[in-house]
Amino acid sequence: MPTIAWESFTPWSALTGGLVIGLAAALFILLNGRIAGISGILGGLLAPEKGQVAWRVAFLAGMILAPVGWMAMAGLPDINVEASYPVVILAGLLVGIGTRYGSGCTSGHGVCGLSRFSLRSLVATLSFMAAGFVTVYLVRHAFGA
């Protein structure tokens, strides 16, 4: 059994934040008829199709402006990146290639796919979660200081 870090555990903000993420995915499917998959929305801009650019840019602009909107009401929550720049670059490349090959990420497969009871998305989600767990284990415990 894992040792739980109770001092870092934030059940209420996690649950309400999750509900808000679900609300965003709900708005997108019910209003626009689309899956809110961030890697797909961004990746689609790299092979632009007619009529498929403006909404993608608008969705991403909304995400980028979310911290600005947040700051109008409250102080921004912590964003701490332990990884060094070279590791961040490697991580970005892997996330970019991997999400396009696997046709989705945490939002498209994890949130929307699991909500649709898609077996394909379940397999994808289990694959990236398992890879994430193993990677952190190797970096922090097997090779780490």
Binding site: I38, V81, A83, L94, G98, Y101, H109, V123, A131
Partner: peptide
């Protein structure tokens, strides 16, 4: 693809 994504996610803690 998903495994590659998971490795990148675990390295920096960022997903898209």
């Amino acid at each position: 693809g998903s495994v590659m994504f998971g490795i990148g996610w675990g390295l920096a803690g960022f997903c898209p």
